[in-house]
Write a protein that binds this DNA or RNA. Structure first.
Ligand code: SF4
Ligand code: SF4
Lengths: 139, 139
DNA sequence: TATAATACAGACTGTAATTATCTATAATTA
DNA sequence: TAATTATAGATAATTACAGTCTGTATTATA
C-alpha cells in the first residue's frame, strides 16, 4: 500500500498554486514543463482537482487554471482525497454490512491520520521555503 | 491506495490465533478450510507472519503454527507491518535525500495512524465477541 | 466569422503489483 | 521408511497505475 504518484504530483501542483495565489491563470503547458510531466497526463490530475473544487478552469484564450479555495484553507487532506477518492483504506469484501470491530479499529486508525491531514494546510509548507532546498522541484 | 487483501487475511488469522491462545498447533489445511482460501496462498501469508516472529512453525507430524508473542501483546500494527512492510506510505522519487517538509507532513500523518495501531491489540476485538456477529468468518 | 488557444473526455497501451495456483523440496515424527 | 507437515520457486491471472494519443468543446480575439 502506497500513495500514488498522482497524489505526489497533485500536492506539488497545489503547493505551486498556493504559492502563486491568484496572481494569474496558469495554463497546462507551463505547468507541465515546470514539472517535467506529460501534458495530457497532468491534465487528468488537474481535472480531478477541478472536480474537487480546489481549482477552477477556463477554456479558450487566456484560459487556464487558478486557485478556487482561499490559499490559507487548502489542506493536505483536500488534495489527497481529490486524487485518492474517499473510500476507506481497509474494507472487507466478505462483509455483511453489519458493524465489525475489526473494521472499526482500522477506520478509527485512518481517521487519526485524516484528522492530522485536515489540520495541515499547504500554505504551512510553502510559506517559509521549507521544502527541501536542494530539490530541483522546489515545489 | 488500499490495504491489500493479504493484510485482511493476516488480521483474521492472527485474531484466530489470539483467540485460540496456545491451545494447540494449527496446521495449514484446517485454517485454509476455515477461511475458504487456497492453502498454498495462505502458506505464504503465514510464512510472512513467521518471519515477523508473530507465530512459529514446525514441520512434520504434529507440526503446524502457533502463537509466538503473548496473546495480549499482538497489535494491529504488528500484523499490518508483517504484511505491508515498513516503507513509508508517501515517498518522493524525485527526491534528493535531504529533508523536505512535504514528506515530513506525510510521514507525521502516517505516524498518527501507526501510533493508534500500535496501541490497539487484537485481543481487544476478539475478547468480547465484538466482530460482526452475523459474519460467516467470525474471525 | 475564422482562427488560435485552451481544457476535457475516451480509448488505448504498457508496466507493475496483487492474488492465486501448481509443483517440487525439506524437515519432522512415528 | 512412510506419512505429515511447512517452505520455496515458477508461473499465471487479474487488477491497478501511469502514461499516451486522438478527437471534441469552449472561449477570446483578430
Ligand atoms: S469479521 Fe469483520 S472484517 Fe472479518 S470478514 Fe467478518 S465483517 Fe469482514
Ligand atoms: S523532495 Fe522535492 S520533489 Fe520530493 S516531495 Fe520534497 S519538494 Fe517535492
Amino acid at each position: 500500500m502506497k500513495y500514488t504518484k498522482a497524489t505526489n504530483y497533485a500536492l506539488h501542483i497545489m503547493a505551486f498554486f498556493v504559492k502563486q495565489d491568484g496572481r494569474d491563470n496558469l495554463s497546462l503547458q507551463p505547468i507541465a514543463n515546470h514539472m517535467n510531466i506529460s501534458p495530457t497526463y497532468l491534465s487528468k490530475i488537474l481535472t480531478q482537482l477541478v472536480k474537487a473544487d480546489l481549482i477552477q478552469s477556463a477554456p479558450g484564450m487566456n484560459g487556464g487554471y487558478s486557485l478556487r479555495k482561499h490559499k490559507n484553507e487548502v489542506s493536505f487532506f483536500d488534495v489527497i482525497q481529490a486524487i485518492e477518492g474517499s473510500g476507506a483504506l481497509f474494507t472487507c469484501e466478505m462483509n455483511d454490512q453489519s458493524d465489525c470491530s475489526l473494521e472499526r479499529v482500522m477506520r478509527e486508525a485512518e481517521n487519526h491520520m485524516i484528522t492530522y491531514l485536515k489540520e495541515k494546510k499547504l500554505i504551512e509548507v510553502v510559506a517559509k521555503n521549507s521544502m527541501s532546498s536542494t530539490c530541483k522541484e522546489k515545489v
